[in-house]
Design a protein around this nucleic acid. Structure first.
Lengths: 197, 197
DNA sequence: CTACAATTTGATCGACCGATCAATTTTTTA
DNA sequence: TAAAAAATTGATCGGTCGATCAAATTGTAG
């Protein structure tokens, strides 16, 4: 296993096949054989490019998080006020979940099922170096708005952030709701502004 | 397998062992052998009292949901205004997650990992007959408050309910937060009242 | 062209799992 | 108390999985 172009392309191909398989059968029923079949390669090749199953899952999770973060961040930076950034964050996040449904499902499958070497699942892990996560982006927007007077200073950014992320993730788990995503996004923005504006 | 007292007690014992095992190793690494060992019985006895592994999980999920629902409902009915009921709902829900942490973890493990005969996980299922779920209780409280004038009528109960449940479940996944549960509950109640009061 | 390195295959191994079942023990029934 | 029913054991079976590896193929450097 090296870092050649071929190896890098192959690894991404396997990661993509892993995402497809996760969405179709879930982590619970996923096997390396199924991923290999999806990627139209032999099972041994996966072991050649990834140390073991957990290593493949770690790379797949990293891929999914990076894509989502990149999409949302690119939308947020287009705005130049905290209010507009907040709106962009909420809408981009909800939009991504709808347009990249397969990725969202794969992400959920890994986060709630995969466990590290010590048996700790991702959803129970302490966010070690939350240097650059989605939550940090959101908290920074809230702080910026407080500092420049767009938002009131009478709320704790961490709690409002939980509030917003909770509402977004709640929607992530119920995409089949009777309420269209667009409307949900608009209403959520309205509510948040009523809270902090 | 019958419905005798012995069988009923044995089934509950197995369900409790299942909850313990879920919390310790997760659904992913759970086996009927481990559940049997936890319950200090033979493996065959589980198959005697439950049709198969999925049947055990269904009973365990039903047990967990019923316990949680019962606790929250008992707290809510003590209050006699929509405002107080809403406060009781939020605080009871958050309190239950902290005092019954093991049950919360087991619930998450089943909902996000177990799949029915058709391969559909619980978290992706349409809530068939949501006759009596937590969400219904919450929506009913919101409707009651709107009808008797405690709350404004300018919001959609379904969306605010998602908002509230999202904030509660977000906390469920991050119990190790720097913010104490009590404070989180108080702030959440304040925010919701600011939204709808 | 040649030799070496990287890549890929597919068979195979040991381990574990869910489910089954004959045999045994305990409880209930009459 | 004797017979029947219920409950329980533990060994066992077929199946699947993750990982390994010798062998084959492809790519690359000299």
């Amino acid at each position: 296993m090296t870092d050649s172009f071929i190896a890098e392309a192959r690894r991404e191909q396997i990661v993509l096949a892993c995402i497809d398989t996760l969405e179709e059968v879930g982590y619970h029923n996923l096997s390396l054989t199924k991923v290999a079949k999806k990627a139209r390669i032999s099972t041994g090749l996966i072991s050649y490019h990834f140390h073991d199953k957990l290593d493949l899952m770690n790379h797949t999770l990293q891929f999914l998080v990076a894509k989502q973060l990149d999409f949302i961040r690119r939308n947020v930076v287009l705005s130049h006020s905290a209010t507009k950034k907040l709106e962009a964050f909420i809408k981009a996040h909800l939009t991504y979940q709808e347009t990249h449904y397969k990725h969202t499902i794969a992400l959920i499958e890994i986060v709630f099922t995969a466990r590290n070497e010590n048996g700790v699942p991702y959803y129970r892990m302490e966010d070690e170096q939350e240097e650059d996560g989605l939550r940090t982006i959101l908290v920074d927007i809230l702080k910026e708005g407080q500092q420049n007077g767009e938002f009131t200073s009478s709320f704790q950014t961490e709690i409002v952030a939980s509030f917003i992320i909770g509402a977004i993730e709640e929607r992530m788990l119920k995409p089949n709701s009777s309420i269209p995503m667009e409307q949900y996004a608009v209403e959520l923005v309205k509510m948040v502004m009523k809270l902090i504006g």
